[in-house]
Every structure is written in structure tokens, then in C-alpha cells.
């Protein structure tokens, strides 16, 4: 897994690659937690290069989204494909999170 963060205006765009499983997810959660602690409030998570996600990844996303909601932050997702998209759908995440086709489409909403 690789995590790349770049900033556009006040938005932290976080790209995550390869696998978010029980082994690699703590790394993602720590990066996100550090950014939030530093005061970042608006996130766009780009999953276009993510091939695999398990419930460990989903749990961490839910934890982060709940924390941001409590701090008046915002988190959007883009670029889900293949099994990642399917797992989000069957877990009901499309109805609780803001998910967009592409980074461009998500940025228009911020």
C-alpha cells in the first residue's frame, strides 16, 4: 500500500494504492489520524488505484468518517472500481458516504 497526500486549496487529497487489508489498514488509519490531528478537516480519498479492501479497511473508513462528522469535517471518496466498488455497495457504504466517479467530480462538490 502507498499513501500519497497532496493539498489543493483547503482540501487534502489522499490517494491509496493496492490493498487495504488487516495488515496494511493501520498505516492508512494512522496517516488520516495524523492529518486530522494537525487540523485538516476536508478530505478527498482517491481509490482509483486501490485493488482490494476488506472489512478492516471499511471499519477504519467508518471510524474516520464518524470522527470527522463530530468535528464538522468532510470526507469524500472517488475512483472506486472492481471489487472495491462492489464491497462498498454490498456493505451499504454508498448510502452513508459521499462517493463520486472521479476526483474532478468530487472536487466540484467541495
Amino acid at each position: 500500500m502507498e499513501i500519497n497526500v497532496r493539498k489543493e486549496k483547503n482540501i487534502s487529497i489522499v490517494s491509496v494504492t493496492e490493498r487495504m487489508d488487516a495488515v496494511t489498514t493501520p498505516e492508512f488509519e494512522k496517516s488520516m489520524s495524523d492529518l486530522i490531528s494537525k487540523g485538516e478537516k476536508t478530505f478527498l480519498i482517491n481509490f482509483s488505484a486501490l485493488d482490494y479492501i476488506s472489512s478492516a479497511g471499511l471499519r477504519s473508513i467508518l471510524t474516520i468518517a464518524k470522527r470527522l462528522k463530530g468535528e464538522n469535517g468532510e470526507i469524500l471518496f472517488s475512483g472506486l472500481k472492481g471489487t472495491v466498488e462492489e464491497v462498498f455497495k454490498i456493505s451499504g457504504f454508498y448510502s452513508i458516504l459521499k462517493i463520486f466517479e472521479s476526483e474532478e467530480a468530487a472536487l466540484l462538490k467541495l
Binding site: K66, K69, I96
Partner: peptide, 14 residues
């Protein structure tokens, strides 16, 4: 899997 984010439980998904 139908409730909104504040009511959504963290566990059981696996």
C-alpha cells in the same frame, strides 16, 4: 446496512 452513518455499527461487517 441500511441505517445512516451515526447509527452504523463498526463491527460485524467481516
Amino acid at each position: 446496512t441500511t441505517v445512516d452513518i451515526s447509527e452504523r455499527r463498526i463491527g460485524g461487517l467481516g
